[in-house]
Write a protein that binds this DNA or RNA. Sequence first.
DNA 1: TTGTACGCGTTATCAC
DNA 2: GTGATAACGCGTACAA
Lengths: 340, 340
Amino acid sequence: MLKSKITLKDIARELEVSVSTVSKALKNSEEISRDTKEKVQAFARLYNYKPNNIAISLKNKRTKNIGVVIPDIVHYFFNTVVRGIEKYANAKGYNVIVCLSEESFDKEVINMEMLANGSIDGFIMSLSSETQAKKDYNHLKEVTQQGIPVVLFDRITNEVDCDKVVIDDQLGAYTATQKLLQQGRKRVALITTDDYLSVAKSRTEGYTKALLDAGIPVRDELILKLPTMEMDEEAIRDFFNNTDMDAILCVNEIFAVFSIRIAMEKGFKVPEDISIIGFTDGMLAKYANPSLTVVAQHGERMGEISAKMLIDKVEDESDEEIFQTKILEPTLVLRDSTIN
Amino acid sequence: MLKSKITLKDIARELEVSVSTVSKALKNSEEISRDTKEKVQAFARLYNYKPNNIAISLKNKRTKNIGVVIPDIVHYFFNTVVRGIEKYANAKGYNVIVCLSEESFDKEVINMEMLANGSIDGFIMSLSSETQAKKDYNHLKEVTQQGIPVVLFDRITNEVDCDKVVIDDQLGAYTATQKLLQQGRKRVALITTDDYLSVAKSRTEGYTKALLDAGIPVRDELILKLPTMEMDEEAIRDFFNNTDMDAILCVNEIFAVFSIRIAMEKGFKVPEDISIIGFTDGMLAKYANPSLTVVAQHGERMGEISAKMLIDKVEDESDEEIFQTKILEPTLVLRDSTIN
DNA sequence: TTGTACGCGTTATCAC
DNA sequence: GTGATAACGCGTACAA
């Protein structure tokens, strides 16, 4: 019963012609007689012949696969980026191989090595936190030196020559902080992560700049730097207990929504007594009670743009080494956790 | 500078030996002299030789790739399943190619066809709603007849012979409904989707059974059936306006969290006046205010089990056609949207 | 101990 | 108009 895939050779044998005739007939080559073409095509259709992708990949040195290596897929932001990549890539006939580094340098390296040996035509990546902390980008450099195109998004580094896509994190944080100040908030806190994460650093800069531009000194006790993007309920609770604040900017939506809860537990009214803004316009932000004002990162568009950049490079024969960095504008989405 | 990938042939030429000698030397074959082996291995290490995956795939007729076709990746449940698959698959040296059907029959078919032509060793799938509505499973049957193993999870069908993994949705709904009744709720509503979705059907059955077992008649006006899993705020609002209820069971966490909001908007206290339970133990459930009591579906374990089943089949030479269906037990996770 | 030949499935080139 | 041959990169049975 197991009618396994039929090959050119099978058709050739059955129809008593040569393999190359079959191949040509199936591509409607001019040099094959109408008669033979029809016979071959009918037979192929009947047995549902489809060329073997692997064989074609070997021949063309093109897999039509894109490797995506990201820290995780639970955070809504990465999720939407993957969706954007999928969308564009599939439309262009590419498959997407997703690998998770889980914020681990080693896993990132292993995944890349697995894929780099012919499995994919190019990489779309966002660096693991460990990689950004170590500042070791040799695995990326090797890959680019082999001529495999790479597109970095969101968590990037300037040490690797490749295309990049980011949002203007600094501007996003600046705008959000400004918004909080405009509401008359005096003690705007920041919940972020250590500076080694490129995005956290930029956001902290934006926050700082907004304060200074408004003539407000930056006070360390209003800034909580967590070691990772992982949720740490204890740390945030402690921060609340020891800090006097009337607004918070959070580096992601999870911290922000959790902050709303703690604030409410402590008897604050949101947004009357305290305003809260997060990064990432995800499910949490939309469906939290109250809903969360956020800096939208446009992950899906970021994914599409990354995919477009990569595929353009892959399909571009001329190997000109021109790399561009695309910077998207973040958008402030106003909801009920701020006074609007 | 572009030192593109080195091949066996390159090494052979450089060292003036034959390709097969190089091949054997690299696998430490006994039949090669210590001398040659060392020379070859040193050279290979120096130039960072790695065998080409595509060539090996073509030869072995094994790609070490798993195709995952799911309706979407935004819903937390599918997200966790993908994570579980990744985890197990990567540990076994497999890559995961993710394709999204976006609930479309056509996309599901196209994606499968793309992958079935040699790109993957097997499929892990959850059916699109359109597929379940049409009840057309020919694309699945074709693939299995070609000898490509398939594992279906969550949204399955009995019309295809393959391994399956599900949770006991009926039991989950039953337990949840029972919980609501035990709290003294008299008018337990259900927000679900049309019956063509296998999981929705089972959950509705569990809900119905729990009511009947408690001697409570099932009343149609307490049941809202939405056409899809897509959020429809309008419909849920209308339902609230026209229905007198003191508890709701929702088929996913989004409907549930949104119901909490509407309830609060309408002046209900949650859980004092109305209790709400959802399916899927995701971010929303955890961080909603109040947090949401849910039926946990254990997506990550489901993913791991699916991957294990598939890889076992892929690597099992004997083609015995024994298919099993694994049924996981759902767990009721109590939080603040019910009185506990 | 090393090398030759062949096959995986496809296509491009060249010969008939 | 059709077919043989080589090539993509690798591994292996067999020959030397």
